[in-house]
Amino acid sequence: MNIINVTPIFLSPDQKIPNNPELPLLLYWQVFSESNKLEHEFKEAFRRNNWAGTWTNGVFNYHHYHSIAHEVLGVAAGTATLILGGPQGHELTITAGDMVVLPAGTGHCKKTASSDFVVVGAYPQGQVEYDICTESDYVAEKQKNIARVPLPATDPVAGATGPLLKHWQKKG
């Protein structure tokens, strides 16, 4: 694992995408060196740090969010531009080795991607059941769910002392 360089981004609510009112999205730049083993490296780190329900695929090309779970996306191959926070949100280009941790409620959508783009996703222990919410969902009801999602006990790649624990602290 490389030295962890993390950028927190707070996203404002969009009319139809709630985002998270307390927790920033976390961008981890080049967590692992680009190699042909990134899928394995992300899966192993997530497993070791109690992030479960791993899957390997891409990112949906429509705006969506999860109201009952946080999510991590480790880029195993390729590159993509994501729109984060809803249709008027923040565009971000991610490449193999990068990782994005999305707090519950954070809108995400693939705008463009290379043909070889692959991510490994996972959820904190106890949150492997998730929902897929879209702009047509009733936001007020989903906000109640988001407020009840517990903080993860560990960072997905750095464990009990990782940067997520510093950046994610619920108020009150």
Results as ranks from 00 to 15, higher is better:
residue 1 M to Q: 04
residue 1 M to D: 01
residue 2 N to W: 00
residue 3 I to L: 11
residue 3 I to M: 09
residue 4 I to M: 07
residue 5 N to D: 13
residue 6 V to L: 03
residue 7 T to A: 05
residue 9 I to N: 10
residue 11 L to S: 07
residue 12 S to I: 00
residue 13 P to M: 04
residue 15 Q to V: 01
residue 15 Q to G: 05
residue 15 Q to W: 00
residue 17 I to W: 00
residue 18 P to S: 08
residue 21 P to Q: 01
residue 21 P to A: 06
residue 22 E to S: 07
residue 22 E to H: 11
residue 22 E to G: 01
residue 24 P to Q: 04
residue 25 L to C: 08
residue 25 L to K: 02
residue 30 Q to R: 12
residue 31 V to F: 01
residue 31 V to P: 02
residue 32 F to M: 10
residue 33 S to N: 13
residue 34 E to P: 03
residue 35 S to E: 11
residue 36 N to K: 02
residue 37 K to G: 00
residue 37 K to W: 04
residue 38 L to R: 07
residue 39 E to L: 09
residue 41 E to F: 12
residue 41 E to L: 15
residue 41 E to A: 14
residue 45 A to P: 07
residue 48 R to N: 13
residue 49 N to W: 04
residue 49 N to L: 04
residue 52 A to F: 13
residue 52 A to T: 10
residue 52 A to H: 10
residue 53 G to D: 04
residue 56 T to E: 10
residue 56 T to A: 15
residue 57 N to Y: 08
residue 59 V to W: 06
residue 59 V to C: 11
residue 59 V to S: 07
residue 59 V to N: 10
residue 63 H to G: 11
residue 63 H to A: 14
residue 64 H to F: 07
residue 65 Y to I: 09
residue 70 H to M: 11
residue 72 V to I: 12
residue 73 L to V: 01
residue 77 A to L: 02
residue 80 A to H: 11
residue 81 T to Q: 14
residue 82 L to G: 06
residue 83 I to E: 13
residue 83 I to Q: 15
residue 86 G to H: 06
residue 86 G to R: 02
residue 87 P to L: 08
residue 89 G to K: 05
residue 90 H to E: 15
residue 90 H to C: 08
residue 93 T to F: 06
residue 94 I to G: 14
residue 94 I to S: 13
residue 94 I to V: 15
residue 96 A to C: 05
residue 97 G to V: 02
residue 97 G to R: 08
residue 97 G to C: 08
residue 98 D to I: 02
residue 100 V to M: 09
residue 100 V to P: 01
residue 100 V to L: 15
residue 104 A to G: 09
residue 105 G to L: 12
residue 107 G to N: 09
residue 107 G to W: 11
residue 109 C to R: 14
residue 109 C to N: 13
residue 110 K to C: 12
residue 112 T to G: 01
residue 113 A to V: 05
residue 115 S to Q: 13
residue 115 S to N: 14
residue 118 V to S: 08
residue 121 G to R: 03
residue 126 G to E: 05
residue 130 Y to D: 00
residue 131 D to W: 04
residue 133 C to K: 15
residue 134 T to H: 08
residue 135 E to P: 01
residue 135 E to M: 14
residue 135 E to D: 02
residue 136 S to N: 06
residue 136 S to L: 06
residue 136 S to A: 10
residue 136 S to Y: 05
residue 137 D to W: 06
residue 138 Y to F: 13
residue 139 V to M: 04
residue 140 A to F: 00
residue 141 E to R: 12
residue 141 E to V: 10
residue 142 K to S: 05
residue 142 K to P: 02
residue 143 Q to F: 04
residue 143 Q to W: 03
residue 143 Q to K: 14
residue 144 K to A: 12
residue 145 N to P: 00
residue 145 N to A: 05
residue 155 D to A: 02
residue 155 D to W: 04
residue 156 P to G: 11
residue 158 A to Q: 14
residue 159 G to K: 03
residue 160 A to Q: 10
residue 161 T to E: 13
residue 166 K to E: 12
residue 167 H to D: 05
residue 167 H to Y: 15
residue 168 W to R: 12
residue 168 W to P: 08
residue 169 Q to M: 09
residue 172 G to V: 12
